[in-house]
């Protein structure tokens, strides 16, 4: 037993130093991107450990508030109520936009729907339209595949359309599960980040171009439209951090802005900020 304790002391407290780690938490949309960045970062600068977790934007911001994260990834801007909590605890924070994202509305490729208006999207998501019959003529109930309430995507869609989701909407654990479900569900209707339906991932799916009011329908995969900010469901991806931690996380933020970083962002299906 004494031997074990000694081993513990040597192995743990011998090399314990908190400064060597950056904890990144938050948005499910951004998590894969953050993993890729962390991976590459390790090759170029192996001195600094980076641990990455997803779970949703709310989780990231809460973790930042609770002191369990150094960088909170968030696919929405911070809420007033959250800001208040930071103020109450006298924590000063700052943000950094590192990419742009577009939300894609997705159905099975078997659907005859070719484009969709924001108004129709609202009606489906609130549960007002429960059947496809009024949209495609097929008599089939609509199954909504959405995200859990801790997801930034969920909040974003809810806020921008000013709706409350139907309680029957499936709350999936992540973008990936939604795609998985939609591929086999001809009655499904879901929303995911455009980054998730790029290239090979959209097999079996149809990504609906969206129009708002009288505008023309725009696809979330249209790079130029995103760059000029024309797509209705597009948003900046934020990283929030405590001001006191800036020096610690600076090398990583700089890496994200570097050429290598921008390349990774682009390859992952997001739009680097400087495109605008």
């Amino acid at each position: 037993m004494r031997f074990f304790l000694l081993l513990l002391l040597i192995s743990f407290f011998g090399c314990s130093s908190d400064n060597g780690t950056i904890k990144i938490k938050g948005s499910d949309t951004e998590v894969n991107l953050a993993v890729l960045l962390a991976e590459q970062y390790y090759f170029e600068n192996s001195g600094l450990l980076v641990s990455v977790s997803g779970g949703g934007s709310g989780l990231g911001i809460a973790s930042l508030l609770n002191g369990n994260a150094d960088i909170a990834n968030s696919s929405r801007s911070i809420k007033y109520s959250e800001l208040e909590l930071f103020e109450n605890r006298k924590i000063e924070i700052d943000s950094f936009v590192f990419a742009q994202d577009a939300i894609a509305f997705v159905v099975s490729e078997k659907s005859s729907l070719d484009s969709i208006s924001t108004e129709t999207i609202s009606k489906i998501l609130t549960g007002e339209f429960q059947n496809w019959s009024s949209l495609t003529g097929l008599n089939m109930p609509i199954t909504i595949y959405g995200r859990q309430s801790n997801s930034g995507t969920y909040d974003y869609v809810k806020e921008i359309l000013k709706i409350n989701f139907s309680p029957h909407a499936m709350q999936m654990n992540g973008n990936a599960q939604i795609i998985e479900a939609l591929k086999v569900d001809a009655s499904g209707f879901g929303y995911v980040s455009a980054g998730y339906v790029l290239d090979g991932n959209s097999k079996g799916l149809k990504i609906l171009p969206v129009y708002h009011g009288g505008s023309t329908a725009i696809s979330p995969l249209d790079v130029e439209a995103i760059a000029s900010g024309e797509y209705f469901f597009q948003r900046p991806l934020f990283q929030y951090y405590r001001k006191v931690d800036y020096q610690k996380i600076k090398p990583f933020l700089e890496f994200e802005q570097s050429k290598t970083g921008a390349k990774i962002i682009q390859q992952s299906g997001y739009y680097p900020v400087d495109l605008r």
């Binding site: 779970g55 949703g56 989780l59 809460a62 973790s63 609770n66 909590l85 309430s149 801790n150």
Partner: peptide, 16 residues
């Protein structure tokens, strides 16, 4: 959605 699943989903996201 059971009680246990609710705790698992929401505990991470709440400010303490």
């Amino acid at each position: 959605r059971t009680i246990t699943a609710t705790i698992a989903i929401e505990m991470g996201e709440v400010p303490y």
